[in-house]
Amino acid sequence: MESLTKIWNWMPALLKASGVTLELTVASVLTALVLGIFLALGKISKNKPIKWLSSAYIFFFRGTPLLLQLFFIYYSIPMMVPALTIQSRFVSAWIAFSLNVAAYLAEIIRAAIQSVDKGQLEASKSLGLTYAQSMRLVIIPQAYRRMIPPICNEFVMVLKDTSLVAIIAVTDLTFQARIIASNKASTLVYIPVMIIYLILTGIFTTVFNRLEKKFSVYE
């Protein structure tokens, strides 16, 4: 009973921190999606410099630890170029996550685009559509459904990875839990926190299952 009251009293702080976690996850993945589409198109482009740049970007962000990328954006860049100092720690985290996740999403999107039958592009071309129109109207809409499960997976990974931002003192759910645990000397707090993570994961999974069904109507 006493424990329940304790947990109840922590809830406002925990819910506020959940909001930060959720905002950071959604904002990062959405930004990364936009960036990822361009990187994916860049990587399959016939234009050599564009192809090389996109590949190098993806190689770099997948090949170095996210934690280092976060440090680099938060500490190193402002030191090297003071004009680029970012006041908000949340914004720094958002940028780092967006840049990183974009590299992973780019590979997901590229694979989905390349899994669409070559005949689709040929049919579009024979009808007079430009390459850009073919991508936008024919190829990418078919790639959507194949991207949904891996993107959902990425969402869940990012949701959990955001706990890294504690390192630059952004008060996300994990950081808040550690504050409570040390201040109140109670490790009980980890139970509601894990439950909140599970609920958030559950929400993402449900939403994405719905989306997948919606995009499957024509099959």
């Binding site: 040929e122 049919a123 024919v138 809409p141 078919q142 024509y218």
Partner: peptide, 10 residues
């Protein structure tokens, strides 16, 4: 085309 290549999402 031999294999039609209709747009399946339309």
């Amino acid at each position: 085309f031999q294999r039609f290549n209709l747009f399946p999402h339309k």
